[in-house]
Design a protein around this nucleic acid. Structure first.
Lengths: 260, 260
DNA sequence: TTATGGTCGATTGTCGACAATTTTGCAAGA
DNA sequence: TCTTGCAAAATTGTCGACAATCGACCATAA
């Protein structure tokens, strides 16, 4: 077959560029979670036609980042504690499979690649920059996914990761005990390296489950606090000035990065 | 929160109707797998604008039913043995999680629902109609998924199921030993009913893995045979004599059902 | 005959305009 | 003051047209 490894320049329709840009903006918080956005607003800012933007928005909706109410508007999702639970249970199942597949097919090339990713995490932990640690953490997990050589698993994982990133952005708290992170991941990596299918799967699963529970609990607590001191939502009716645009017209979103 | 269970009448934009129609046509084989289709052709047959069809096609691409080559055309996917392997490994991971969740939260309502689905399968097995047996089989699995009450898991499973159906349509062979089917599923159902989380997960996983391997092997064999004597799946275009449409213009697809 | 180059039809990419629908705001009446 | 009804604004739904690009065909020359 023609599996030549020519770089093969990739065509990037504007459509896809716009999709990526918007996805980034949502995931990294430029467009805040729960925000209402409109097609014309985006198309104006990006200088693209509404049809193009529309396609992009539909894509993102399919990815679970947006919801569309017909004839009314688009809204970025805001994740609840239940959503986080769903995300992490799913993630644990997917990562378990990936770890098993990699352990099953481990070889020297994969070993060095896995070690490289793990070393990256170790280094960042020693430096201490939390956001960089989180990034290296993601990278290690993603490396395992990619090494499983399973396109559907990978694309499924990408969706989950996106939404998790979104949540982590919105809740600033996450990493507590830095030194523990290394020891949490080391057994997973080791079991994969030694080809222990059972252990690698089990450890991966448990790691995600506990991690997810931690985040979910944190969010539940935050939700409870929010419920105790609710925003002044119901009281004012008419002339209320500056107020969260919970139901009103679409809010103006701060400047999006330029296309291209 | 406003989680009221008002039925809330749903508006069905033509867009979505078209998407559903096309999805069905692909999954049930009205549009054969591997076929090339064009936007104008579909929009003509369905009497809808290209933009609408285009959105629908993009959706289906995101669902893994179509692929788009820029400026060239759309093609329905044709699943290889590797694809089947991916599908079933993923499915096993997802169903394992679902079974565990259901076993964990089993109660009388869920018990009766699960028993009802299993009885349906038993009845069909006794009747002997293979396609109805397959349908009851799917239904049982889907019941477990739905009972897990996990929206992301369910939507993920829906995608997998779609593609599996597509493959099963194209390869007519599947069920061999009818009586065995019941005994394959009974332990899974029993372990869930007794709330045995570990066993239910393990059994679900293994069931899918073995079933997937069976289908994958069957397909591999078919692929080998096809390579030996390539099939004449041709469509005549102009004056060209019969020839495989591997690269040619889009083939005419037989009448699609009417919209509405 | 075969290789080369250009031309042309087919197909998707992008766009702006109009239609359908929902939500909002205001005014009139009780 | 509160409710009700109606009009207007906002927003998505649908459409047809033109541009960009690709693949196939054909004329030409070695």
């Amino acid at each position: 077959m023609s599996k030549l490894s020519i770089p093969r320049i990739v065509k990037m329709p504007v459509e896809m560029q716009a999709t990526d840009l918007l996805r980034d903006s949502i995931v990294n918080g430029t467009i805040p979670s729960g925000a209402r956005i409109t097609e014309v607003q985006i198309s104006d800012q990006l200088k693209l036609s509404r049809a193009t933007i529309r396609t992009a928005l539909h894509q993102l909706a399919k990815e679970g980042l947006l919801t569309l109410v017909p004839y009314t508007g688009w809204t970025t999702v805001s994740l609840s504690a239940r959503d986080v639970w769903e995300l992490y249970t799913l993630r644990s199942a997917v990562e378990r499979l990936a770890a098993q597949l990699v352990a099953e097919s481990i070889n020297s090339a994969k070993s060095s690649r896995l070690n490289w990713a793990f070393d990256g995490l170790v280094k960042e932990c020693k430096k201490g920059d939390k956001s960089r640690i989180a990034e290296a953490d993601f990278a290690l997990h993603k490396t395992i996914i990619q090494m499983s050589d399973h396109t559907r698993l990978a694309s499924q994982y990408a969706l989950i990761e996106q939404q998790i990133r979104m949540y982590i952005r919105s809740s600033d708290a996450l990493i507590s005990d830095i030194t523990a992170i290394i020891e949490q991941h080391r057994p997973i990596v080791d079991s994969i390296l030694t080809g222990d299918v059972e252990a690698s799967g089990h450890l991966s699963e448990q790691h995600n489950l506990t991690e997810g529970k931690k985040l979910s609990d944190h969010l539940k607590q935050a939700e409870a606090k929010a419920a105790a001191a609710p925003a002044p939502a119901a009281a004012i009716k008419k002339k209320a000035p500056a107020k969260a645009p919970a139901k009103g017209r679409a809010m103006r979103v701060s400047a999006l990065p330029k296309l291209r």
